[in-house]
Amino acid sequence: MNAFRLAGDMTHLISVLVLLLKIHTIKSCAGISLKTQELYALVFATRYLDIFTDFISLYNTVMKLIFLGSSFSIVWYMRRHKLVQRSYDKDHDTFRHQLLVLPCLILALLIHEQFTFKEVMWTFSIYLEAVAILPQLVLLQRTRNIDNLTGQYVFFLGAYRSLYILNWIYRYFTEPHYVHWITWISGLVQTLLYADFFYYYISSWKNNVKLTLPA
């Protein structure tokens, strides 16, 4: 495993921990999109179907369990926990996430590397992950009042995607036959979705002012 990949996984892990910290400790999910969190739970559930059938490494299995467990518990907190539920900004989180699921499923059925159930589900999860952040970005844009933890959560998620791109470039040059257009194009699309947010995040940090997004 190269350094970019490890750093990517770690920023992904940090983003989840930041979100759990906010929800579990402060008992608030203000500014967090339940739609995005539900999409992530679906992403991990469909991607890690191999968790009990293909052993890759202890690291791999443990990380999969963490991402599955954290994504489902975040959804549980936001839907069922009395205090957390109350801080959920339901009126602004209106992105119809079903509209993302169906096109991704159709695309996975059309474009994949192997036509097997596991591989099509895996491909679906790759496509869905690329667009799953959209409800969150729309919510940030609508509320415009972004607290530090929410900003950091989205920042670390974006950092994770950028580092994975560096990881693919590294692997392309160091491993024979490492060519995966599906992952690369989806990953690139996903990273580009963060570009706007990154621009405002970094300029607010540089100027030492509170993060706001333009309407």
């Binding site: 990949r5 191999d50 036959h177 490492y178």
Partner: peptide
């Protein structure tokens, strides 16, 4: 074989 070389990513 190439098949699982990218499934090691999370």
């Amino acid at each position: 074989h190439r098949h699982y070389d990218y499934h090691d990513e999370l």
